[in-house]
Design a protein around this nucleic acid. Sequence first.
DNA 1: AGTTTGAGTGAACGTGTGTTCACTCAGATT
DNA 2: AATCTGAGTGAACACACGTTCACTCAAACT
Lengths: 209, 209
Amino acid sequence: MAAQVEVIESRSERKERTRRAILDAALQLTEDSSLVAISLRQVAKEVGIVPTAFYRHFESVESLGLALVDESFESLRGLLREVWLRSPQFQDYIDGSLPVLAEHVRAHRAHYSFIARERAAGPPRVREAIRHEIELISRELATDVARLPDGQAFSTDHLNLLADLIVSFVVTTAERLIEDPGAEARILADTRTQLRMLMVGAINWRSAR
Amino acid sequence: MAAQVEVIESRSERKERTRRAILDAALQLTEDSSLVAISLRQVAKEVGIVPTAFYRHFESVESLGLALVDESFESLRGLLREVWLRSPQFQDYIDGSLPVLAEHVRAHRAHYSFIARERAAGPPRVREAIRHEIELISRELATDVARLPDGQAFSTDHLNLLADLIVSFVVTTAERLIEDPGAEARILADTRTQLRMLMVGAINWRSAR
DNA sequence: AGTTTGAGTGAACGTGTGTTCACTCAGATT
DNA sequence: AATCTGAGTGAACACACGTTCACTCAAACT
C-alpha cells in the first residue's frame, strides 16, 4: 500500500491549477482540429471536470482562445526585442532572430500550432487578436531598423513595408516548422537564404526606387 | 396564379445540379467557419435535401473538401501560365500576375476564403492537397524564370527558393485580400512595392552571394 | 466558533450529430 | 411495354452538444 500524501493547496492555487489544465487541454485538442470545432464538453472531459465547472474560468470557448493568444505571444516579443537590441547590423537581425524563433517554436509547439490554425480559421475576435500581435512585432522591427545606418535609406512607409515583408515570411516559416518538424534544418537553411535575398534587395533599394 | 413550368431534365443533369448545390452550400457555410466545424446535416439542410442523399455525391465531408480544392485552383493555374508565357522581363511577372490574382480573388471570393481557412485548419488530406497545388505554382514560376536572361544568374536551388519566396508572399497577399476586401487598393499597392523590393534583391543576388 | 464564498457537482432540457436501413418512383435501358 | 437503376426519402439509433439550476462542502473571512 502506497502512502497517501495530502497536499495542502490554497483556494487560489487550486483555481489556477484547474485554469492551467483547461488551457493545456484546449491546446491539446486544438492540435489536430480547431477552436471552432472543439466543444466545451470535450475540454471539460479532458481536464476531468464536469462541463459546468468550465464557466468558473472562462465565459466561452472564444475567451479561452483569447487567453491562449496572449500566452503564445508573451515571451516571443520579449525574446525578439532582446535580440534586436543587441544587433548592430541589419544582417544580425536575421542571424539572431531565426534561431531564437526556431527554438521558441520547438519549446512551445502546441502554442504555435494553435496560432497557425486560429490565425486563419479561428473565431473572428481570436483572428483579430493574432493579427494585432503580429502587426506589433512588425512595427517594432521597423522602428528598430530605422535606427541602423542601413535604415536611413528608407522612408517610413518603405521601412514599414520592408518589415511587413520580413515578418510575413517569417510567419510562413514558423507555420512550416509546425507542419513538418522533421524538416527543421532544411527549412531554416532555406529561410536564411531567402531572407538574405530579401536583404540584398533592401540594401540596394535606395538606388533602385 | 403563375403558370407552372415543367422543366425537362435528364438524370445526370439533375445529379450534377445537386452536386453543384452541395459544393455551393459548403462554400457558403465555410465562409465563417471551417470544414472541420460544419456538419453533413447543415450542408444537406442548406441544399434542401435529406442528410442521407449527401452520400450519393460524396463519401464524406473531407472528399467534398478535396473537390473544392481542385475547383479552386483549376482556373488560376491556367491564368498565371498565360501571363507568364507573355512576360519577356522579370518585372512583367509581377505587373501581370498581381492584377490577375486580384481579379480572380474578387471573382471567386468564396473559393479563396475556403482555401485560406482550410490551408491551415482543414482536414490533413485537404491541407496536403492545398500545399501541393501551391507548390506546383511555385515550381512553374521557377522554371519560367529560368528561361529569362535575368534567370541565368541563379542556380536551380536558388531559383526555387526565390520562386517560393515570391509565391509565399503572394499567398499572404491573397489571404489579406480575403480578410479585408475594402482595402484592396492599398493591399495591392503595398504588395507591388514589396515584390519590387524582392526583385531588386533577386537582380543583385548574383554579385552578393 | 460561526458565517460567507465560490470551485466543482450532477441531473435535466431540447436540439444536433453521423450512419443504418428499407422505401419510392421517375428516367434510362432492354 | 416491361424491367432496371439510382437519386432522394423518412424513420430510427445511440450519442454529444451548450446551458439551466439547485446542490455540496472546504477554504477564507469575520
